[in-house]
Design a protein around this nucleic acid. Structure first.
Lengths: 217, 217
DNA sequence: CCAGTAATGTGAATATTATCACAGCGACGA
DNA sequence: TCGTCGCTGTGATAATATTCACATTACTGG
């Protein structure tokens, strides 16, 4: 890996914004734009120019003082920050409705992620091929995962024994998990679990719809 | 509406944690637990006891000083905060892979949300019924949405004209949108748009996998 | 009845995050 | 060549979020 650790510390919120910046930068790049000013990019990303400059500066400064930021180079830099300059293999656990729709989701491949293997507990599904990926039984996790060099996983399965499943994944070499199952799980030492709960986000939106006026936009 | 506005101001981060608390409280309730202490609930939710108490206190205090918090009453209170004590109709825009899997997702109904109507731009899909919901053409949005009293929508469609679509939804009475489309859109005045970008979350996880050690857990 | 215990709610302190405001630089035109 | 302009990067400041620590309160047991 050519990129050294971020010099000071890149906050998680900065990292989240980086995804947004990169998305916009790629659109600019497709449109042939070579350089962009902080206030321009900031406006498109709905953040303040100062914040954008600080975000950019937080992992090394690349802005030209009179041309602005070089679009293509920033894309490469952010990709390296994410480690998605090379394709990353990930494992999908659960081939239900949501899981299968994720297999067909093009966004992952476009952004450097490849669902390489599918695991399920349902013996009906084991052995079948979904969108080009063979489905293995969860029981064989420890045998299968190392073959694909899996460091990240996606949980789209049932709620039963979820914590146990996470622990096993960790022991099998998975370092990070994107969890779609609406159940609280604790990340084992050294692992990261990011939780997406669709209903929780709807609840937040519902709250905003009712009380949003009290929060200034 | 029996609940008055939160007395001071409930921060968004508090609201997000409320979803977690409620999930745990419902599990406790199913297990017959009537009261729970802040340190107990906090441990299950992976937050500090002080934070939990502040969160609870932020929209009115209900903790009994020696019994802890009443589980069932807290569930009701949080539900009222979210406005999900009554079922909320929502509209789904896009009946592709992701959209259809959301139609089958049970979590919404369990938490007070009901996808009442489906819109798509593909005339092949219009008129069909997916998981019990009839699919209408996006063009007829303005006619269809008022019939169902829709205040919230879910975007799971293509990227074309997304901003325009959001604007139209706003004019048709939709106040909040959950956007699954990986494209930046700006919320019109008075609306709220919450963005879920699967790849962005994978990017964050990928970053954590590489540099996570520098961020203390 | 009263002291001891353990919980909540909350002012005060701290940590974190975002904004302000400007020094300093490079491009450009006269 | 030099002055002007507008940009970036960043110290200083402000705003926000979290944690600490304790006053206050309800229960319990002797």
């Amino acid at each position: 890996m050519t990129l050294k650790k971020p010099r000071k510390k890149v906050s998680l919120q900065t990292v989240e914004r980086m995804s947004i910046y990169r998305k916009i930068l790629e659109e600019l790049h497709r449109n042939g734009v070579a350089n962009v000013y902080s206030h321009h990019l900031a406006k498109m990303a709905d953040v303040s120019p100062a914040q954008l400059r600080r975000d950019m500066a937080s992992f090394g400064s690349f802005g030209n003082i009179s041309k602005g930021y070089p679009v293509y180079q920033m894309i490469l830099t952010i990709s390296r920050l994410f480690g998605t300059d090379t394709l990353q293999n990930i494992a999908l656990i659960g081939a239900g409705n949501l899981g299968r729709s994720l297999l067909f989701y093009r966004g992952f491949e476009e952004r450097g992620f490849h669902i390489a293997v599918v695991l399920d507990i349902d013996t009906e599904k084991v052995g079948k091929v979904f969108a080009g990926r063979r489905c293995y039984h969860i029981q064989d996790m420890e045998k299968v995962l190392p073959d694909f060099e899996i460091a990240m996983g996606i949980l789209a399965c049932g709620q039963q024994n979820l914590q146990n499943l996470v622990d096993r994944l960790g022991k099998a070499g998975v370092r990070s998990i994107l969890n779609f199952v609406p159940k609280v799980v604790h990340a084992p030492e050294g692992m990261h679990v990011e939780h997406i709960d669709f209903s929780a986000i709807m609840e937040k939106l519902s709250f905003l719809t009712r009380f949003g006026a009290s929060v200034e936009s």
